[in-house]
């Protein structure tokens, strides 16, 4: 991707290794395009800082700020020296016009995000926590490219807090749901990961639940 030097003059920023670019819960209206270097996306959970992802040159982060001024959902820290372009809502149209490839990239990010958000919404609109956890399994499996309609066993690495978060239920409720599934031999807990014995069972369970709910809504 070719970006003129004049863009860097106007919008360029250099971050030192270890420097925070923005912090979770801070209100921000800027987003970034990495020219050079690596950033780490982190979140503090309890007493530990967890790395969710790393990004490098050509990647965009903080793009949700274009949509609305919500608190940042994660912290971004420069891992190496990072050269980036910093934009805000006012000048982003200019950026996109000068760089259609980036606009296209953003379009793809939005498509993915819309789907992810819809998928999450589907999980949390289920009534009972067992079903939510089941649907969260399906989501994680789908993301791994698993065909959830096939009778296959799948091993998923999802930390408990993340699972609870996806389902919008407490850790205790999540544990309870997992224990239920273990008791009925649907899953096994192996160290950090969850082994699903037959993922299509979960798909059937969630699909049926949705059908019933839909039917009841119509009556």
């Amino acid at each position: 991707m070719i970006l003129g030097d004049n863009l860097f003059e106007k919008f360029g920023k250099v971050f030192k290794p270890g420097e925070i670019i923005f912090c979770e819960y801070e209100i921000g209206n800027t987003f970034y395009f990495i020219l050079n270097g690596i950033v780490r996306i982190t979140k503090i959970v309890g007493d530990t800082e967890k790395t969710l992802d790393t990004m490098g040159s050509g990647d965009i982060f903080g793009e949700m700020a274009i949509l609305e001024q919500q608190p940042r959902s994660a912290t971004v820290i420069a891992q190496t020296e990072v050269k980036a372009l910093e934009f805000n809502r006012e000048n982003f149209e200019m950026l996109l016009q000068s760089n259609l490839q980036m606009a296209l990239k953003l379009l793809k990010i939005f498509c993915k995000r819309i789907y992810d958000a819809k998928r999450q919404l589907m999980i949390i609109t289920l009534d009972e926590s067992d079903y939510r956890v089941a649907d969260a399994f399906l989501l994680v499996a789908e993301k791994k490219g698993v065909h959830t309609d096939e009778r296959v066993s799948v091993e998923l690495k999802v930390p408990l807090d993340e699972l609870a978060n996806m389902c919008a239920i407490s850790m205790d409720e999540t544990k309870k749901a997992l224990t239920n599934f273990v008791r009925f031999n649907k899953i096994e807990l192996i160290g950090e990961s969850i082994k699903i014995n037959n993922i299509s069972e979960f798909l059937r369970m969630v699909t049926n639940k949705r059908k019933v709910a839909k039917h009841q809504a119509r009556i």
Partner: peptide, 22 residues
């Protein structure tokens, strides 16, 4: 660019709506 920008706006609106519901 016009088409691209329009799509971006439509999608970002959808994203904002769903995000808010979530």
């Amino acid at each position: 660019f016009r088409v691209l920008l329009k799509m971006l706006k439509v999608f970002s609106n959808q994203l904002r709506r769903i995000g808010k519901t979530v």
